[in-house]
Amino acid sequence: MDLAVILSILDATIRLSTPLLLACLAGMYSERAGLFDIGLEGKMLAAAFAAGAVAAISGSAWLGLMAGMVVSLGTSLLQGVAAISLKGNQLIAGVAINMLAAGMTTFLGQTWFHQGGRTPPLGEGGRFETITLPFANELAGVPILGPIYADLISGHYILVYIAFIMVAVTWFVLFRTRFGLRLRAVGENPKAVDTAGISVVKLRYQAVIITGLLCGLAGAYFSIAQGSGFGNNMTAGKGYIALAALIFAKWKPVPAMFTCLLFGFLDALQIRLQSAELFGIEVPVQAIQALPYVLTVVLLAGFIGKAVGPKAGGVPYTKER
């Protein structure tokens, strides 16, 4: 393999990791606050549809992005009301959200646009353009480092850069701010937080809001950056891979980035290869597809390290009366 091939696979890795990373960071806020979130997929799908639909009608990618974030926020709050205020089962709420998004997006898409659930293809301005970083073209001639900068680092959608910036932001928020400390405390021991006079409910809603906004970015990426318009079930289980990545990264931002890159790399690899040879044994492409899930199961089982989630995860908080 020469440099160009490697670069193109790595380039695809970054493109495919971005929605995973955004969704994974989104899930991190909820789960750190003690809310299991298996509804990432549904929120992304809803956002992808809203972004695609609004961008198609308005012709503006930015308006599409806003719409995606608003819809994802609304979906997230619905899940939040069920899980926080009504003290419902968080897992069931997540399942309901996923199903609701899958049904609503196809249903509304078909009813509004009559293209089999797709939104109309986006024209000029409706879709995000890739950004060429300064000096990328000038430096492209420099051996090795030039192509890496020009092809790999430069030339992505703005959401890609936002995703990677959000890793640092999330790390800072979670581990270097008062809000982050409280958020993590709420996920470990909500009673202690309550005793200290801080509202558990308010903190959890704040987490849900951040989750919704980030899922909105992730969803919009599918329909108005990577793709041109929304297609049926566009997120195709990526929300679950993001959830797997979140567990694999043990709910930490920087490992989350590397996990998402790894899972994105596997995805890029299986798109490129139909099958691979490994030590003379043929590895079917389905094995590569299943690898993120298998790795997560193995990790969860504690065979390689141990993933222990926030202690209060999944338990609705009831203030003592």
Partner: peptide, 15 residues
């Protein structure tokens, strides 16, 4: 699918 999701939401999560 929408009805199904709403049933899960209201009878399950929003009980």
């Amino acid at each position: 699918v929408v009805i199904q999701a709403l049933v899960i939401l209201f009878t399950g999560a929003m009980e």
